[in-house]
């Protein structure tokens, strides 16, 4: 039988994301961030987003009173968005743009392209740039139009 290594804990270990108090065994990068955001936002839109879409459609179908209840949750009496309306509105549009951007990045990666470290990192960062810029543009347009 092989003897135990003299210094057991000095040897390289598998790269677990967390050990001890949230300790990372590798450097966190944009590609990992964009990946986990893709999953979190996708799951969020599939649940919260889908239920809100259905509630909105069902409220319109049900009539004036049901739609008023929907509007009342997200707007003030004056008709402007309330804090929840802002969080849900901006959150959903940003989620759509971010999931869309990282989805397009996935389609490029599916072809076998853009795995080189620099372009991979750059495309991950660009997903966030795109989603934040598009969300800002969308809401600026709504604000200018109003």
């Amino acid at each position: 039988m092989a003897s135990k290594p003299a210094i057991p804990h000095k040897r390289p270990r598998s790269p677990h994301a967390f050990r001890g108090p949230m300790q990372l065994h590798y450097r966190w990068g944009p590609a990992m961030t964009v990946s986990i955001f893709h999953r979190m936002l996708g799951s969020g839109m599939a649940t919260v987003g889908a239920l809100l879409l259905v509630w909105w459609l069902a409220a319109v179908a049900a009539g004036d009173a049901a739609y008023a209840v929907f509007l009342d949750v997200f707007t003030t009496d004056a008709g402007a968005l309330n804090p929840l309306g802002w969080i849900v509105g901006v959150g959903l549009t940003w989620s759509v743009f971010q999931h869309m951007a990282s989805g397009i990045r996935h389609l490029v990666l599916d072809t076998g392209a853009a795995y080189e470290l620099k372009i991979n990192k750059l495309s991950a960062v660009l997903c966030f740039v795109f989603s934040i810029a598009m969300t800002a543009l969308f809401w600026l347009y709504l604000g200018v139009k109003a």
């Binding site: 879409l53 259905v54 459609l57 069902a58 319109v60 179908a61």
Partner: peptide, 10 residues
């Protein structure tokens, strides 16, 4: 089902 029904009803 709910979404499709609502759209069709409208």
């Amino acid at each position: 089902g709910t979404a499709i029904f609502a759209i069709l009803k409208i």
